[in-house]
């Protein structure tokens, strides 16, 4: 089954080459182990726009959905046997050491 690992971290505004390299290595490991489905990093929350439609009226708001200490900065979709395997994979995501990784199963339709 598939799990999504959502990566929450404090936004520092710059991506140091070491972190970049660490993510590259993690991605390669996941591909080699057959877990990798997809994954991306996001632009910072300063680029976020929230959209709502109420009573047919569209409104836009500048900024992320919620102002929290840690922001969603990227994600992976991983193919894993069970939660324990997904947690073992998520534990290798570089951001786990500084932020929080939320692991959730993808709804199979």
């Amino acid at each position: 089954m598939q799990f999504m690992a959502l990566i929450y971290n404090k936004e520092t505004g710059n991506h140091d080459p070491e972190t970049f390299q660490a993510y590259g290595k993690f991605t390669q490991d996941m591909i080699a182990q057959g877990h990798f489905k997809s994954g991306d990093a996001l632009q910072p929350t300063a680029t976020a726009t929230c959209l709502t439609i109420r009573d047919g009226k569209t409104s836009l708001k500048d900024g992320p959905f919620s102002e929290t200490k840690e922001q969603l900065g990227g994600y992976y979709i991983l193919e894993c046997e069970n939660l324990d395997e997904a947690i073992a994979c998520a534990a290798q995501i570089p951001g786990a050491k500084t932020g929080t990784i939320e692991v959730r199963p993808v709804l199979a339709l």
Partner: peptide, 14 residues
């Protein structure tokens, strides 16, 4: 059931 928490005794360091 939704997250497939395995029905097993963990092995090794775990």
């Amino acid at each position: 059931s939704a997250t497939a928490i395995p029905y097993e005794v963990p092995a090794g360091n775990e």
